[in-house]
Protein backbone atom coordinates (compact mmCIF):
# COMPACT_ATOMS: atom_id res chain seq x y z
CA UNK A 1 0.00 0.00 0.00
CA UNK A 2 1.45 3.36 -0.96
CA UNK A 3 2.07 6.05 1.63
CA UNK A 4 -0.69 8.20 0.11
CA UNK A 5 -3.21 5.37 0.47
CA UNK A 6 -2.06 4.73 4.04
CA UNK A 7 -2.55 8.43 4.81
CA UNK A 8 -6.06 8.43 3.34
CA UNK A 9 -6.92 5.29 5.33
CA UNK A 10 -5.67 6.87 8.60
CA UNK A 11 -7.64 10.02 7.81
CA UNK A 12 -10.83 8.02 7.17
CA UNK A 13 -10.45 6.03 10.40
CA UNK A 14 -9.80 9.27 12.32
CA UNK A 15 -12.86 10.86 10.74
CA UNK A 16 -15.02 7.87 11.66
CA UNK A 17 -13.76 7.90 15.26
CA UNK A 18 -14.08 11.63 15.64
CA UNK A 19 -17.53 11.47 14.07
CA UNK A 20 -18.57 9.17 16.91
CA UNK A 21 -17.30 11.61 19.54
CA UNK A 22 -18.28 14.72 17.73
CA UNK A 23 -21.85 13.71 17.01
CA UNK A 24 -22.64 16.70 19.16
CA UNK A 25 -23.73 19.80 17.31
CA UNK A 26 -24.16 23.30 18.66
CA UNK A 27 -27.79 24.28 18.22
CA UNK A 28 -27.73 27.82 19.53
CA UNK A 29 -25.83 30.33 21.63
CA UNK A 30 -27.39 32.76 24.07
CA UNK A 31 -24.98 35.61 24.71
CA UNK A 32 -26.92 38.89 24.76
CA UNK A 33 -29.93 40.24 26.61
CA UNK A 34 -32.97 41.87 25.01
CA UNK A 35 -31.17 45.25 25.11
CA UNK A 36 -28.23 43.83 23.15
CA UNK A 37 -25.82 43.93 26.10
CA UNK A 38 -23.62 40.89 26.59
CA UNK A 39 -24.04 38.46 29.45
CA UNK A 40 -21.50 38.89 32.25
CA UNK A 41 -20.49 35.90 34.39
CA UNK A 42 -23.68 33.86 33.76
CA UNK A 43 -23.79 31.20 36.48
CA UNK A 44 -26.76 29.04 35.64
CA UNK A 45 -29.50 28.29 33.11
CA UNK A 46 -32.60 26.16 32.89
CA UNK A 47 -35.51 25.23 30.60
CA UNK A 48 -39.18 25.61 31.47
CA UNK A 49 -42.27 25.40 29.27
CA UNK A 50 -40.58 26.10 25.96
CA UNK A 51 -38.24 28.81 27.19
CA UNK A 52 -34.66 29.06 28.38
CA UNK A 53 -33.93 31.08 31.50
CA UNK A 54 -30.43 32.36 32.21
CA UNK A 55 -29.03 33.82 35.43
CA UNK A 56 -26.91 36.75 34.22
CA UNK A 57 -25.12 37.14 37.54
CA UNK A 58 -22.67 39.90 36.59
CA UNK A 59 -25.47 42.09 35.26
CA UNK A 60 -27.79 41.24 38.21
CA UNK A 61 -30.68 40.03 36.03
CA UNK A 62 -32.59 36.99 34.82
CA UNK A 63 -33.17 36.65 31.08
CA UNK A 64 -35.70 34.52 29.23
CA UNK A 65 -35.10 33.25 25.68
CA UNK A 66 -37.38 31.48 23.23
CA UNK A 67 -36.55 27.99 21.93
CA UNK A 68 -34.48 29.53 19.11
CA UNK A 69 -32.33 31.46 21.59
CA UNK A 70 -33.89 34.87 20.92
CA UNK A 71 -33.82 37.04 24.06
CA UNK A 72 -37.32 37.88 25.26
CA UNK A 73 -37.23 39.65 28.60
CA UNK A 74 -34.73 40.65 31.28
CA UNK A 75 -35.84 41.22 34.86
CA UNK A 76 -34.46 42.17 38.24
CA UNK A 77 -37.58 41.91 40.42
CA UNK A 78 -37.70 44.68 42.96
CA UNK A 79 -34.02 45.36 42.32
CA UNK A 80 -33.32 42.54 44.82
CA UNK A 81 -30.93 40.61 42.59
CA UNK A 82 -27.36 41.52 43.50
CA UNK A 83 -25.60 38.17 43.21
CA UNK A 84 -28.13 35.68 41.82
CA UNK A 85 -26.63 32.22 41.38
CA UNK A 86 -29.33 29.81 40.27
CA UNK A 87 -33.04 29.67 39.45
CA UNK A 88 -35.89 27.22 38.97
CA UNK A 89 -39.67 27.28 38.84
CA UNK A 90 -41.50 26.00 41.91
CA UNK A 91 -45.11 25.31 42.85
CA UNK A 92 -47.75 27.78 41.60
CA UNK A 93 -45.36 28.83 38.81
CA UNK A 94 -43.26 30.93 41.14
CA UNK A 95 -39.67 31.67 40.35
CA UNK A 96 -37.09 30.62 42.92
CA UNK A 97 -33.66 32.24 42.89
CA UNK A 98 -30.54 31.66 45.01
CA UNK A 99 -29.47 35.17 46.07
CA UNK A 100 -25.99 35.07 47.53
CA UNK A 101 -25.88 38.64 48.87
CA UNK A 102 -28.76 37.81 51.26
CA UNK A 103 -27.78 34.15 51.71
CA UNK A 104 -31.41 33.41 50.93
CA UNK A 105 -33.74 31.84 48.40
CA UNK A 106 -36.05 34.41 46.83
CA UNK A 107 -39.55 33.18 45.96
CA UNK A 108 -40.71 35.54 43.22
CA UNK A 109 -44.30 35.83 42.07
CA UNK A 110 -43.92 37.62 38.74
CA UNK A 111 -47.70 38.14 38.39
CA UNK A 112 -48.20 39.94 41.69
CA UNK A 113 -44.63 41.30 41.72
CA UNK A 114 -44.06 40.03 45.24
CA UNK A 115 -40.84 38.61 46.63
CA UNK A 116 -40.56 36.38 49.69
CA UNK A 117 -37.07 35.57 51.02
CA UNK A 118 -36.45 32.15 52.63
CA UNK A 119 -33.43 31.56 54.82
CA UNK A 120 -32.57 27.93 55.33
CA UNK A 121 -31.87 26.63 58.81
CA UNK A 122 -31.46 23.08 60.04
CA UNK A 123 -30.92 21.99 63.62
CA UNK A 124 -29.79 25.46 64.67
CA UNK A 125 -27.38 25.92 61.77
CA UNK A 126 -27.80 28.50 59.06
CA UNK A 127 -27.30 26.88 55.67
CA UNK A 128 -25.50 28.39 52.67
CA UNK A 129 -27.39 27.64 49.42
CA UNK A 130 -25.58 27.49 46.07
CA UNK A 131 -27.87 25.68 43.61
CA UNK A 132 -31.52 24.61 43.67
CA UNK A 133 -34.00 22.46 41.81
CA UNK A 134 -37.72 21.79 42.35
CA UNK A 135 -38.94 18.29 41.62
CA UNK A 136 -42.29 16.70 42.50
CA UNK A 137 -43.05 19.15 45.28
CA UNK A 138 -39.61 18.86 46.86
CA UNK A 139 -36.99 21.56 46.83
CA UNK A 140 -33.43 20.24 46.57
CA UNK A 141 -30.67 22.69 47.46
CA UNK A 142 -26.90 22.36 47.25
CA UNK A 143 -25.69 23.59 50.63
CA UNK A 144 -22.10 24.67 51.15
CA UNK A 145 -22.37 24.71 54.95
CA UNK A 146 -22.83 20.94 55.20
CA UNK A 147 -21.56 20.16 51.70
CA UNK A 148 -24.70 18.07 51.16
CA UNK A 149 -28.05 18.23 49.40
CA UNK A 150 -30.91 19.78 51.38
CA UNK A 151 -34.43 18.42 50.92
CA UNK A 152 -37.15 20.91 51.83
CA UNK A 153 -40.90 21.32 51.42
CA UNK A 154 -43.27 24.23 51.53
CA UNK A 155 -45.61 24.06 54.52
CA UNK A 156 -48.09 26.80 53.86
CA UNK A 157 -45.89 29.76 53.03
CA UNK A 158 -42.96 28.49 55.08
CA UNK A 159 -40.09 26.50 53.63
CA UNK A 160 -39.10 23.71 56.00
CA UNK A 161 -35.89 21.69 55.69
CA UNK A 162 -36.84 18.04 56.20
CA UNK A 163 -33.43 16.43 55.85
CA UNK A 164 -29.96 16.84 54.40
CA UNK A 165 -28.10 14.17 52.49
CA UNK A 166 -24.48 14.23 53.62
CA UNK A 167 -22.68 11.03 52.59
CA UNK A 168 -21.51 8.73 55.36
CA UNK A 169 -17.99 8.25 53.95
CA UNK A 170 -15.16 10.23 55.53
CA UNK A 171 -13.29 12.30 54.58
CA UNK A 172 -15.94 14.14 52.59
CA UNK A 173 -15.17 17.54 51.10
CA UNK A 174 -18.65 18.57 49.98
CA UNK A 175 -20.58 18.50 46.72
CA UNK A 176 -19.99 20.89 43.83
CA UNK A 177 -23.05 19.93 41.82
CA UNK A 178 -26.00 17.56 41.91
CA UNK A 179 -28.85 16.35 39.74
CA UNK A 180 -32.14 14.76 40.78
CA UNK A 181 -33.32 11.94 38.54
CA UNK A 182 -35.95 9.19 38.70
CA UNK A 183 -33.42 6.77 40.21
CA UNK A 184 -32.31 9.17 42.96
CA UNK A 185 -29.77 11.95 43.45
CA UNK A 186 -26.42 12.10 41.65
CA UNK A 187 -23.77 14.41 43.05
CA UNK A 188 -20.17 15.38 42.25
CA UNK A 189 -17.72 15.86 45.11
CA UNK A 190 -15.17 18.65 44.96
CA UNK A 191 -11.43 17.91 44.85
CA UNK A 192 -11.77 14.10 44.95
CA UNK A 193 -13.84 13.92 41.74
CA UNK A 194 -15.98 11.18 43.24
CA UNK A 195 -19.56 10.69 42.09
CA UNK A 196 -22.14 9.84 44.75
CA UNK A 197 -25.51 8.27 44.15
CA UNK A 198 -28.35 8.17 46.64
CA UNK A 199 -31.05 5.82 45.38
CA UNK A 200 -34.74 6.37 46.04
CA UNK A 201 -34.48 3.55 48.62
CA UNK A 202 -31.75 5.44 50.48
CA UNK A 203 -28.83 3.29 49.32
CA UNK A 204 -25.60 5.24 48.94
CA UNK A 205 -22.92 4.45 46.35
CA UNK A 206 -19.55 6.06 45.60
CA UNK A 207 -18.12 5.97 42.08
CA UNK A 208 -14.84 7.32 40.80
CA UNK A 209 -14.20 7.84 37.10
CA UNK A 210 -10.82 6.40 36.13
CA UNK A 211 -9.50 9.18 33.93
CA UNK A 212 -7.39 12.24 34.45
CA UNK A 213 -10.03 14.82 35.29
CA UNK A 214 -8.44 17.99 36.65
CA UNK A 215 -11.19 20.33 37.82
CA UNK A 216 -14.67 18.84 37.27
CA UNK A 217 -17.40 21.31 38.22
CA UNK A 218 -20.69 19.92 36.98
CA UNK A 219 -22.32 16.62 36.10
CA UNK A 220 -25.37 15.41 34.22
CA UNK A 221 -26.85 11.91 34.11
CA UNK A 222 -29.05 10.69 31.30
CA UNK A 223 -29.59 7.84 28.84
CA UNK A 224 -27.08 5.48 30.43
CA UNK A 225 -24.35 8.13 30.33
CA UNK A 226 -22.63 10.37 32.86
CA UNK A 227 -21.48 13.72 31.53
CA UNK A 228 -18.79 15.59 33.47
CA UNK A 229 -17.74 19.14 32.72
CA UNK A 230 -14.07 19.90 33.45
CA UNK A 231 -13.44 23.62 33.96
CA UNK A 232 -9.66 23.34 33.57
CA UNK A 233 -9.59 21.02 30.56
CA UNK A 234 -12.59 22.83 29.02
CA UNK A 235 -14.10 19.53 27.96
CA UNK A 236 -17.19 17.46 28.59
CA UNK A 237 -16.27 13.85 29.40
CA UNK A 238 -18.85 11.19 28.61
CA UNK A 239 -18.81 8.01 30.72
CA UNK A 240 -20.84 4.84 30.86
CA UNK A 241 -23.36 4.74 33.70
CA UNK A 242 -21.72 1.88 35.57
CA UNK A 243 -19.33 1.53 38.48
CA UNK A 244 -16.53 2.32 37.78
CA UNK A 245 -17.60 4.58 34.91
CA UNK A 246 -15.71 3.94 31.68
CA UNK A 247 -14.71 6.88 29.51
CA UNK A 248 -16.37 6.78 26.11
CA UNK A 249 -15.15 10.06 24.67
CA UNK A 250 -14.82 13.76 25.37
CA UNK A 251 -15.79 16.80 23.36
CA UNK A 252 -15.50 20.62 23.32
CA UNK A 253 -12.24 22.59 23.39
CA UNK A 254 -10.69 25.66 24.97
CA UNK A 255 -11.37 28.93 23.21
CA UNK A 256 -13.31 32.15 23.14
CA UNK A 257 -15.46 31.69 20.07
CA UNK A 258 -18.89 30.10 19.79
CA UNK A 259 -18.65 26.36 20.30
CA UNK A 260 -15.64 26.75 22.58
CA UNK A 261 -15.25 26.97 26.36
CA UNK A 262 -13.24 29.32 28.52
CA UNK A 263 -14.48 29.07 32.13
CA UNK A 264 -17.47 26.70 32.00
CA UNK A 265 -19.57 26.29 35.13
CA UNK A 266 -22.67 24.19 34.62
CA UNK A 267 -24.28 21.44 32.55
CA UNK A 268 -28.00 20.83 32.39
CA UNK A 269 -29.90 18.46 30.19
CA UNK A 270 -33.11 19.88 28.72
CA UNK A 271 -35.57 18.53 26.14
CA UNK A 272 -33.83 20.81 23.61
CA UNK A 273 -30.34 19.47 24.35
CA UNK A 274 -27.41 19.88 26.70
CA UNK A 275 -27.17 23.38 28.18
CA UNK A 276 -23.57 24.49 28.78
CA UNK A 277 -23.08 27.64 30.87
CA UNK A 278 -19.73 29.35 30.23
CA UNK A 279 -19.04 32.03 32.80
CA UNK A 280 -15.77 33.14 31.18
CA UNK A 281 -17.15 33.67 27.69
CA UNK A 282 -20.44 35.11 28.99
CA UNK A 283 -22.36 32.57 26.96
CA UNK A 284 -24.89 29.76 27.30
CA UNK A 285 -25.02 27.19 24.52
CA UNK A 286 -27.28 24.29 23.66
CA UNK A 287 -25.70 21.15 22.20
CA UNK A 288 -27.58 18.17 20.80
CA UNK A 289 -27.23 15.03 18.72
CA UNK A 290 -24.46 13.26 20.65
CA UNK A 291 -24.52 9.55 21.31
Amino acid sequence: MSRVSQGILILLVALCLSGKAWGWKRLLSMEVGPDGSHLLYPMSATWEKGRFYVVDTGNHRLISYDAQGKPLKAVNPGGRLVAPLDLDFGPRGRLWVVERSENALLEIDLASRSIRPHRLRYRGRELFPERLVWRQGWLYVLDRETGGVVMARLEGEKLVVKKIWVPKVRPFTGFLDFKVRDDGIWALEKTTHRIFHLSSQGKEEVWKPAVGLVYPVSLEVSGGRIYILDRYLRKIFVFTLQNPPQLLYSFMEKGWRRGQLYLPRELELTPEGLLVVDEGNGRVEVWAGGS
Partner: peptide, 28 residues
Protein backbone atom coordinates in the same frame (compact mmCIF):
# COMPACT_ATOMS: atom_id res chain seq x y z
CA UNK B 1 -21.63 29.19 68.44
CA UNK B 2 -21.18 26.23 66.09
CA UNK B 3 -19.76 26.22 62.57
CA UNK B 4 -18.31 29.38 61.04
CA UNK B 5 -20.52 31.49 63.34
CA UNK B 6 -17.94 30.73 66.03
CA UNK B 7 -15.37 32.75 64.07
CA UNK B 8 -17.80 35.36 62.75
CA UNK B 9 -18.78 36.18 66.35
CA UNK B 10 -15.50 38.15 66.57
CA UNK B 11 -14.53 38.52 62.91
CA UNK B 12 -17.86 40.11 61.92
CA UNK B 13 -16.56 41.84 58.81
CA UNK B 14 -15.39 38.55 57.35
CA UNK B 15 -18.99 37.28 57.09
CA UNK B 16 -19.69 39.86 54.37
CA UNK B 17 -16.80 38.49 52.30
CA UNK B 18 -18.67 35.24 51.93
CA UNK B 19 -21.81 36.92 50.62
CA UNK B 20 -20.17 37.57 47.25
CA UNK B 21 -20.61 35.65 44.02
CA UNK B 22 -17.36 33.71 44.26
CA UNK B 23 -16.53 32.47 47.74
CA UNK B 24 -14.43 29.98 49.63
CA UNK B 25 -17.32 29.01 51.89
CA UNK B 26 -16.49 25.38 52.65
CA UNK B 27 -18.18 22.53 54.39
CA UNK B 28 -18.10 22.67 58.18
Amino acid sequence: PRGPEMCFACHRERRKDFLKVHTHYLRS
